[in-house]
Amino acid sequence: VDYIVEYDYDAQHDDELTIRKGDIIKNVKKLEEEGWLEGELNGKRGMFPDNFVKEIK
């Protein structure tokens, strides 16, 4: 499942992704941690907030 970024987010920890509006995040999975998703961007896998992105259908 792929998501498109709607709002910029700067990573706060090493396991998070810095994302920018218009980025496409690939292979996204829901995490047990409420409010977070995990996906791949530019060869890096990491977490990001689910309210900054929208699923591409």
Rank of each mutant, 00 (worst) to 15 (best):
G43Y: 03
Y7V: 07
E33K: 11
D2H: 08
G35V: 03
Q12E: 13
D15S: 11
F52K: 08
K29Q: 15
L31G: 11
E34Y: 12
N27S: 13
I4E: 13
Y7L: 15
K26R: 10
V53K: 03
K21I: 12
I19P: 01
W36V: 05
V28R: 01
F52W: 04
G46W: 00
H13T: 10
D14Y: 15
N51K: 11
L31A: 15
F52V: 07
E16L: 01
L31Y: 11
D8L: 02
I19Y: 00
D14I: 13
D14F: 14
I4Q: 14
Y9E: 00
G46N: 02
G43N: 10
N27Q: 13
V5E: 00
Y9R: 09
D23L: 02
E38V: 04
D15I: 11
K26D: 03
K30V: 15
W36H: 03
K54Y: 02
D50Q: 10
E32F: 14
L31I: 13
R20H: 15
K54F: 03
G39S: 01
E34H: 12
Y9S: 03
E6I: 15
E38L: 03
E16K: 03
V28H: 02
I4F: 14
L37D: 04
D15F: 11
I19F: 07
V53Q: 06
N51E: 07
G39A: 03
K29G: 14
W36T: 03
L41A: 08
E32M: 11
N51Y: 14
E55F: 00
V53G: 11
L31N: 12
V5L: 02
V1G: 15
R45V: 15
K44V: 15
V1W: 05
Y3T: 04
K57L: 08
E40M: 08
Y7K: 09
K29D: 11
E34Q: 12
G22Q: 06
E32L: 10
H13I: 06
K26W: 02
H13F: 14
Y3I: 04
I4R: 13
V5Y: 02
Y3K: 04
K21E: 09
G43W: 03
G39R: 00
G39L: 01
Y9D: 00
T18Q: 09
Y3Q: 03
L17Y: 00
L17H: 12
L31T: 15
L17I: 09
Y9M: 03
Y9L: 03
K44D: 04
K26I: 15
K44P: 02
V28E: 01
T18I: 05
E16A: 05
D14H: 14
V5F: 02
D10Q: 12
G35E: 07
L41W: 05
Q12V: 14
F48R: 00
I25F: 00
E6K: 09
W36I: 05
Y7P: 00
V53H: 05
E33R: 15
Y7E: 09
I19D: 00
V53N: 05
D15Y: 12
D2Q: 14
T18G: 03
V5I: 04
L41P: 00
F52D: 05
D14R: 10
Q12H: 10
D10V: 10
V1Y: 15
D2V: 05
D2G: 05
M47F: 12
E16R: 03
I25M: 03
G35L: 04
G46V: 03
D23N: 08
D50A: 13
L17W: 00
D10W: 06
K26Q: 08
Y9G: 01
K21L: 10
I24W: 04
T18E: 06
D15T: 12
E38G: 04
D50T: 10
Y3V: 07
K21A: 12
E32V: 15
I25H: 00
D15E: 09
V1T: 14
K57T: 12
E40T: 10
Y9V: 02
T18K: 06
I19S: 02
N42M: 11
D14M: 11
F48V: 13
Y7A: 13
E33I: 13
D14W: 15
I4M: 11
T18N: 11
D50W: 03
F52E: 03
A11D: 01
F48Y: 03
K57S: 14
K57Q: 14
L17E: 01
L41Y: 09
W36F: 08
T18D: 10
T18P: 04
L31H: 13
Y3W: 13
K44E: 11
K21T: 07
V1L: 13
K30R: 08
V53R: 03
K29M: 15
E40Y: 07
R45M: 05
I24L: 07
N27Y: 03
D23S: 07
Y9T: 01
Y7M: 09
R45W: 04
I24Y: 08
E55K: 06
D10Y: 14
N27G: 13
V5S: 07
L37W: 10
K26V: 12
M47E: 04
G46A: 07
N27E: 11
G46P: 00
N51M: 10
F48K: 00
V53L: 05
W36A: 03
E34K: 13
D50L: 13
I19T: 03
F52G: 05
N42V: 09
Q12D: 14
F48S: 01
K44F: 06
D10H: 14
N27K: 06
K21H: 09
Y3S: 04
K57P: 09
D23V: 04
K54N: 11
K21R: 12
K30D: 12
D10P: 05
I56H: 09
V28Q: 01
H13P: 01
N27L: 14
Q12R: 12
K29L: 15
N51R: 10
E33T: 05
N27D: 15
F48N: 01
G39P: 00
A11N: 04
I25R: 00
G35R: 06
G43L: 06
D15N: 07
V5Q: 01
N27P: 01
P49A: 06
D23F: 01
E16T: 02
P49S: 07
E34N: 14
D14K: 14
D15R: 10
P49W: 04
R20G: 04
I4S: 13
M47T: 10
K54L: 07
E55Y: 00
A11K: 10
E40P: 00
E32P: 11
L37K: 06
K30A: 08
Q12K: 11
D23W: 01
I4L: 10
E32T: 15
D50V: 11
K26A: 15
I4D: 06
K21N: 07
E55L: 07
I4A: 10
E32H: 12
D15W: 14
L31P: 14
A11Y: 02
E16F: 05
V28D: 00
W36M: 07
E32A: 11
V1A: 13
D10K: 08
I25S: 00
D14Q: 15
V5G: 12
E34S: 11
F48H: 00
I24E: 05
Q12I: 11
I4V: 12
R20W: 00
R20F: 02
L41N: 06
Y3H: 06
W36K: 07
L37A: 09
N51Q: 13
H13N: 09
N27V: 06
I56Y: 01
D23H: 09
G39I: 00
Y3E: 02
N42R: 12
G43S: 12
Y7S: 09
R45I: 12
Y3L: 14
K54S: 11
D50H: 09
G35T: 07
G22D: 07
L31E: 07
G46T: 01
G39Y: 00
K26L: 06
I56K: 06
D23Q: 14
I25K: 00
G39H: 00
W36G: 02
I56G: 05
Y7N: 14
Y9N: 05
V1H: 15
G43T: 06
D8R: 02
E33P: 13
T18L: 03
V5D: 00
